[in-house]
Amino acid sequence: MRPFEHLTVQAADEAIQALAGGDGGNTRLIAGGTDLLPLLKDGLVNPGRLIDIKPARALRHLTFDADGSLRIGALTTLAEIERSSQLAERLPLLRQSVVDAATPQLRAMATVGGNLLQRSRCWYFRGPFDCWLKGGTVCYMRDGENKYAAIFDQGPCRSAHPSDLAPALVALDATVSISGPAGSRTTPVAEFLAPPTNDERVEYRLRPDEMVTEIRIPAEAIAGHGVYLKAMDRRAWAFALVGAAAQVTILDGKVARARLVFSAVANVPWRATAAEALLVGQTLTPDLAAQAADAAIAGASPLAHNGYKVPLARELARRAILAAANLWTETN
């Protein structure tokens, strides 16, 4: 780790002021630090100054508002989501998405805001390779050891998005509140997370002088029921091979709203809109869930070593859709 100056702030507006120094990204915020510290140790980011925002207690809360919507402060830890009895009852998808994420120690430190800003786990990105995502010209994942790579092609980079929480948030139509020197803005998580491009080789869209302050989930999404299913190559402490978040609302026996979002199949959470469209307006049956699951993986273009992700995603999708509607059993 290279030396850096250190600043501690007590509130978001102090952090924004400090970020406004105009040093072109040389200053970074630190919250839980569970991704930033490894990035610093690997030299993948080398800020001259860190701003500790953990003391900003106003950014650490889980609040159901009177209209049924949910606000989550950016500094809320994954452990706090895991342990919330209110969430377990009212929004099981969100809680399920974090219980198998990382480990208890990491969930105790890691924050919701930081989760959305975590960088790729691709070993070419993390390791000593001048890969495209780090500013080079080649994505080594394409022809290299690509067992964990994305199966959907979204551009030059083939790394798979690691977050379990993010696909759940996308399935819940969550928005992210962002503060900067010009005030606040709100954007869907589904747009905040975006495939890296030539100009922005990062998986999110946040200016160096901005910070994430809050996540909001609308009441109509919370009104449904959902699950997060995660396949790992061991039973604990692993990133998803594939994860599937499904949130379904059934009214008068028909699907009124459906969301199906995968983790670890694309650069960012992958929403299977074709599958959702097949479900809406229909009576949910095992056959329909299977058709939707087939639609969900249409267009996948696996590489040499990650073809297993295609049937895995299809089956997780099928089970997640059925489980979201309380129809999943071992026999169907």
Binding site: H6, L37, D52, Q105, L106
Partner: peptide
């Protein structure tokens, strides 16, 4: 790098990885 757990300590009773925390914080 927060991948083994050998550095676990308690912060206010909560288990954390001390290799991923800055002492100043």
């Amino acid at each position: 790098m927060g991948q083994c757990g050998a550095c676990t300590v308690l912060l206010d009773g909560e288990a954390v990885y001390s290799c991923l925390a800055l002492a100043i914080e």
